[in-house]
Computed example of a mutant assay.
Amino acid sequence: MSEGQEQRSVRVMLEEAWDVSKTVVIAVGITLFVRFFFIQPFNIPSASMEPTLMTGDFILVDKIDYGYSKASLIFPLTRLPLEGRMFSDMPQRGEVAVFKNANDRNKDYVKRIVGLPGDTIQVIGGVLHVNGQAVTREPIPDPETTCEGYSPQARRYRETLPGGPTYIVQECDGNRGAADNTAPKKVPEGHYFAMGDNRDRSLDSRSTTVNFVPHDALVGHARRVIFSVDGDKARFYEVWKWPFAIRYERIGDKVE
């Protein structure tokens, strides 16, 4: 090969490498742009939101609904000393939200908003009370459902919040725990009270580890399940087991 041919070959290789690099940079930029401003995927690692969200669900979170704050940024940028929220809007009572918990190393939590600023929230005998009134709960017979795969059987109820939002909650341990009988808590301005639908398996605003959720800590509004893998049948990286582990019936479900 002549010197001129070698130079042309090197030039072609460099141009191809540059084209690939530009494609990667553009793809990464678009992904980050979408994740910051529009939607972000999240994995559900625990049973705290059962039966609404299952361990192994992957959900899409709408980041437009609540506006943007440092909680919208991708870790570790969330540690920047930024305050306030742009294009802010309040979540509605009953919505499932993702937020950053500053009391737990800024981890992402997924819970249901049951209390708005000014509300007084209390749990008495396992029943949620909003502003002194017990929410409506209707038992749902479901004798085949167990708590995380073991006895006792779960008890499920359709719960309806003031204003009409309705969803299904689950109990496993009866009304014996401290989280089933709490003192009344008034939600301060700029904060929310969040609870998991799996009431006996949820670390939420009833605990000092979470407490009230600041408005600036909101990440977004959980919208849909886009994928779901049963961890008892396959770990996420065990792709060869997916055909038998994917919960096909949950894909595309709206989070309500």
Score class of each variant (00 low, 15 high):
residue 198 N to S: 13
residue 202 S to V: 01
residue 213 V to F: 02
residue 208 T to Y: 12
residue 217 A to H: 15
residue 216 D to V: 13
residue 207 S to Q: 03
residue 204 D to G: 00
residue 191 H to D: 13
residue 198 N to T: 10
residue 213 V to H: 00
residue 210 V to P: 02
residue 219 V to N: 08
residue 188 P to H: 12
residue 220 G to A: 07
residue 212 F to G: 02
residue 199 R to W: 10
residue 194 A to V: 10
residue 192 Y to S: 05
residue 207 S to M: 08
residue 214 P to R: 02
residue 218 L to D: 06
residue 208 T to N: 14
residue 202 S to C: 08
residue 202 S to L: 07
residue 222 A to P: 00
residue 189 E to K: 12
residue 210 V to A: 10
residue 214 P to C: 07
residue 190 G to Y: 01
residue 203 L to T: 13
residue 207 S to K: 07
residue 203 L to Q: 13
residue 201 R to I: 10
residue 215 H to E: 15
residue 213 V to M: 05
residue 194 A to N: 07
residue 218 L to P: 00
residue 213 V to Y: 01
residue 220 G to F: 04
residue 198 N to V: 11
residue 209 T to W: 12
residue 199 R to M: 09
residue 208 T to I: 12
residue 197 D to H: 08
residue 197 D to I: 02
residue 207 S to F: 11
residue 222 A to H: 03
residue 200 D to I: 05
residue 194 A to M: 11
residue 201 R to S: 15
residue 205 S to R: 03
residue 203 L to Y: 06
residue 209 T to P: 00
residue 214 P to Q: 06
residue 200 D to Q: 04
residue 195 M to A: 07
residue 195 M to S: 09
residue 202 S to N: 10
residue 222 A to C: 10
residue 200 D to P: 01
residue 215 H to D: 15
residue 190 G to R: 02
residue 194 A to H: 10
residue 221 H to V: 02
residue 203 L to E: 14
residue 207 S to I: 00
residue 210 V to T: 14
residue 203 L to R: 11
residue 193 F to W: 14
residue 192 Y to V: 08
residue 201 R to G: 03
residue 212 F to K: 03
residue 212 F to V: 00
residue 193 F to V: 04
residue 205 S to H: 08
residue 191 H to K: 14
residue 209 T to Q: 14
residue 188 P to V: 09
residue 205 S to G: 01
residue 216 D to Q: 15
residue 208 T to W: 11
residue 215 H to C: 04
residue 218 L to E: 09
residue 199 R to T: 09
